[in-house]
Design a protein around this nucleic acid. Structure first.
Length: 403
RNA sequence: GUGAGAUUAGCUCAGCUGGUUAGAGCACUGGUUUGUGGUGCCGGGGGUCGCGGGUUCGAAUCCCGUAUCUCACCCCA
């Protein structure tokens, strides 16, 4: 038997109903916030992700589905959505046109990781990207938007916030942090030794308890923000406070992708295991120019769809439509004709083999039909059809023409 | 990529220290004296015991390998 590839799932029936419901809610909310849908390719040039997500990230370092195509191009399946949207934004010269653009997207992403709960090799993200707005009000707005989506779906969460600073205040802070790490070099774990060289900010994120004890005294970026970043962060928290949107400031929250700056946030669920980040995002004011575009402020987020699926509760579907059945072979053609006619206005399910009334009622019940319509010898004699409402239990025989 | 556990009917699982035709509940299907479901009763079908080797007179059971799933690390949505 041929099976699906490791970490790649089929989405069927009940799961798909929740998948679909999520997208309806998320797309509706995005529309009300003024975002427009964009579709970008699943396959992109590998360099796009090297230059945006960053060489130091694990995503680019070891998780990409990368290969050389028949034309000799170095390509890969997209591991995240922002880079493609930014590429399209620049390619179609929105950066030159100027102004404000708000886009959203959803679709599959690919990362070659070891699968576990909430972590697949092919998974789905819903994300938005906002271009041309430097105001931190947009950051606040996006956070409220994620909140709207989760509230509508009935999903509980906590919001974690941090500021990663900008190109003015981050470099001096990084130097400061590195000298702190150097000073404690012998006490920290091997992972942190490595991170010190590749991406020193990430040491703050270390799960090792002994390391954390040391980093408790590490310099905090929050204390070293430049006046502009500091003011923006205060404005952001003030706006959230006004909307009674609760959050915790986590100075160790570091986005794993290189392009983030200033606002960084993560929505966490406590109900889904170790892979508990259900949404993440932040500002990336410098990314457009890194990809050869005209400098444009930008902010966005992405939601991990699979991680939400088990948290979404759908109401039981109501009974709807008709079930058509025949009790003898002679009535079969008539049943098909009548069912087909009914389909012009209603949902209709037609059974193609003659069965007992009991069997038809059982079938009708199983497919959640509201009405069970059956024709047998008796009905055929009077040119009628027997119909039972499975909810009210009312039953009657009506003329075929009045159906 | 590392460590740990799991894998027996469509689903959830039992199967003790290796021993004859591998079980249960649910689901499916048929019947219930002949046309009434979701809710009675009786019956029936369905399993190369993940896959490949090995040990043994004999393996679902022991050993090795491998695949997948789950959990943790790591990473991130």
């Amino acid at each position: 038997m041929i099976r699906s590839l490791r970490g790649m799932n089929d989405i069927l029936e009940e799961e798909y109903r929740r998948f679909d419901y999520f997208h309806k809610v998320a797309c509706d909310v995005a529309g009300r916030y003024g975002f427009h849908y964009v579709e970008t390719p699943l396959l992109e040039e590998t360099a796009l992700f090297r230059r945006s997500v960053g060489e130091s990230s694990d995503i680019v370092g070891k998780e990409m589905y990368q290969f050389i195509d028949k034309g000799g191009n170095d390509v890969c399946l997209r591991p995240e959505g922002t880079a493609g949207v930014v590429r399209a934004f620049i390619q179609h010269k929105y950066d030159k046109k100027g102004g404000v653009y708000r886009f959203f997207y959803h679709g599959p992403m690919f990362r070659y990781e070891r699968p576990q709960k909430g972590r697949l090799r092919e998974f789905h993200q819903f994300g938005v990207e906002s271009f041309g707005i430097a105001s931190v009000y947009e950051d606040a707005s996006l956070i409220l938007m994620v909140g709207d989506i989760f509230d509508t779906l009935g999903i509980g969460y906590t919001l974690q916030l941090n500021s990663l600073g900008c190109h003015e205040c981050m470099p001096p802070y990084k130097e400061h942090l590195i000298s702190f790490i150097e000073a404690h070099s012998e006490q920290i774990c091997a992972d942190c030794q490595r991170r010190k060289m590749t991406n020193p900010i990430r040491v703050l994120d270390c799960k090792n308890g002994e390391c954390q004890a040391i980093y408790a005294d590490a310099p905090k970026l929050m204390d070293h923000l430049c006046s502009s970043c500091s003011l923006d962060f205060k404005t952001l928290t003030a706006r959230l406070d006004e909307h009674a949107f609760s959050y915790t400031i986590d100075t160790h929250l570091v986005r794993g992708l290189d392009y983030y700056s200033k606002t960084a946030f993560e929505f966490i669920s406590s109900d889904i295991g170790a892979q508990n980040a259900i949404a993440g995002g932040g500002r990336y004011d410098r990314l457009i120019e890194f990809l050869d575009g005209k400098p444009t402020p930008a902010v966005g987020f992405a939601i991990g769809v699979e991680r939400l699926l088990e948290l979404i509760q759908l109401p039981q579907p109501e009974r709807e439509g008709y079930y058509f059945g025949a009790m003898d072979a002679q009535s079969l053609p008539l049943i098909l004709t009548l069912g087909q006619r009914k389909r012009r206005t209603d949902k209709a399910i037609i059974e193609y083999s003659a069965k007992s009334l009991k069997a038809h009622l059982k079938n009708a019940d199983r497919v959640h039909a509201r009405h069970c319509a059956v024709i047998g010898e008796n009905e055929r004699k009077q040119n009628g059809i027997w119909i039972k409402d499975l909810v009210t239990k009312e039953e009657m025989v009506i003329p075929i023409d009045s159906l």
